[in-house]
Simulated assay, not measured.
Amino acid sequence: MSLGGGIFLFVVGAILAFAITVSPSWIDLQVMGYILMGAGVLIIILGIILLVRKRRSTVTTREGIDPATGLRYNTTERRDDADI
């Protein structure tokens, strides 16, 4: 979603900055276009950073002998950082 939103803002900003020739008295569309393009680039960069961020996980293995039955047991547990 963040990549798509960033691309959308960049495209709308480019249209405002370069394609529209109307100039209302209350707003400068060229400056608004540059602001939207900058915001779009920032959102795209943040989206890429969030996509490549690694998820960490911990794997715990326990081995032993059950004192009641004398049988050997082996358990493995995996925990992601998102679960904390």
Rank of each mutant, 00 (worst) to 15 (best):
V41T: 12
R78F: 03
Q30Y: 07
F10I: 06
I49C: 03
N74R: 13
I84Y: 13
T69C: 06
V59D: 08
L42S: 13
I45R: 02
T69K: 11
T21D: 06
A39K: 01
D80A: 14
R55G: 14
L3R: 03
L46P: 02
G13T: 02
M1V: 02
L16S: 02
T61K: 14
P24Q: 08
I15V: 05
V12F: 09
E77H: 12
M32P: 05
R72W: 05
S25P: 13
G70F: 02
T58L: 08
I48R: 03
I7T: 05
D80N: 10
S25L: 10
I44M: 15
V31E: 07
I7N: 08
F10L: 13
I49F: 00
T61F: 04
D83H: 04
V12H: 04
D28S: 15
N74L: 12
T61Q: 13
A39F: 11
R53T: 14
D80M: 13
I27P: 06
L46S: 15
A17E: 14
T61G: 05
L29A: 11
I27D: 00
V12S: 09
G13L: 00
L36H: 06
G4H: 04
L46D: 13
G47P: 04
I45K: 06
I35Q: 09
G64Y: 07
A68L: 15
I20P: 06
R62M: 04
E77G: 07
F8Q: 07
I84L: 14
M1I: 00
T76I: 00
S23N: 10
I65E: 08
V59A: 05
Y73H: 00
G4Y: 00
S57A: 10
L9R: 15
R56T: 11
I45A: 07
V52R: 06
R55A: 11
